[in-house]
Amino acid sequence: MKIIVPIKMVPDLVEELEIDESGKRLDTSFLRFTINEADDHAIEEAVILKEKYGGEVTVIAPDIGEVDDVLYAAAAKGVDRLIKIMGDFEELDSHLYASILTEMIKDMQYDLILTGCEAITDLDGQTGIFLATNLSLPYIGLVSKYKKEDGSLCVNKEFPGGVYGEYKVELPAVLGVMAAEKPPRYVPVAKIRAAMKSAQIEEIDAPEIKVETGIEIEKMYVPEVGKGAEMIEGEPEEVAKKIAEALQNKGLL
């Protein structure tokens, strides 16, 4: 099975997010970018499927932040081909990214495209379903179990309440990955270093495309912290006392 995994780079939420002077954008000057979590699961699942059924996995990523590290880590996990899209990606919305990917992927050979079911920055919609629509492929998201059956893939889609829906998807298709069958594997640093020496990152210039999202951000802001919450401060023992008091007052102890 030939699998393509387009991934997104997103701000690392461990960092404090700030808005720039315009009041309309994240201040990216000191931001660390990391792989979108669901995309990490997509890479893992692609490698699992390759291990089970054979084939080849290609990861495509935009040149944002520490993308080289992400790509080499993917190679260390078993990804065969690494493609970095070169361009000025200050503002890479889902519309534009999906259109760039469409141009790149339409002439490639593949049976399956795996993407994360969404990214934390998907203000204008999700890349996976846009890509599927552009390529006229079936799309199903929030998928977490995968099994090959003839020319189809049998998948479980997650619904609220822990309910799964089982679906048979004709290939080629695009899947929005909620989770891989197993948590993304840990890759030792030594293996990543080895991948840095042996693996090649192909750099491809982004096709020149202009796409309108049709939306305009008027204002971006950090929600008021602790709005409504009473913050408890002090040493752990003091905090514990205050919490216990609150519980007692509510008759919860």
Partner: peptide, 20 residues
């Protein structure tokens, strides 16, 4: 789970903007 499988398709096909 359901809305996310439909909205993006509808938006692109109708050429409507989308907000998630």
């Amino acid at each position: 789970s359901i809305g996310m499988d439909l909205a993006g398709f509808v938006a692109l096909k109708l050429n409507f903007p989308m907000v998630a």
